[in-house]
């Protein structure tokens, strides 16, 4: 099994006081738009968790892509799904 790189960013921002790490408050990943800075922190954390090494330029570009995807995703994330709205799986045993 691949070992995840040991980096401070791997877990710290999520476990420490969020207000120190997120200037605009803790992100609500299911709905609220994020700032560019929030996404840069998010990428630093999750890339490390996924074993994806990114230099600063790539990290900035991935953050920009995520910011764009988040903007595009907003109508979906705002959509009021009910507790009976199940996904439509195709898996057949």
């Amino acid at each position: 099994m691949r070992t995840l790189p040991r980096r401070r960013a791997q877990v710290q921002p999520w476990l420490q006081n969020a207000s120190n790490e997120f200037p605009h408050g803790r992100p609500q990943l299911a709905s609220a738009p994020q700032s560019a800075q929030d996404w840069q922190i998010y990428v630093a954390v999750t890339a490390a968790m996924h074993g994806l090494e990114l230099d600063p330029a790539r990290q900035a570009e991935v953050a920009l892509q995520l910011q764009r995807i988040a903007l595009m995703a907003q109508p979906l994330l705002d959509y009021p799904l009910g507790s009976h709205d199940e996904s439509a799986p195709v898996f057949l045993p």
């Binding site: 990943l29 299911a30 890339a47 991935v62 892509q65 994330l77 799904l81």
Partner: peptide, 20 residues
Amino acid sequence: SAGALLPAAWYVQAQRLRAR
């Protein structure tokens, strides 16, 4: 790369909207 890092909640929400 950005897609690989998306929150799981977003993906599940997308699949649930599909049926609706």
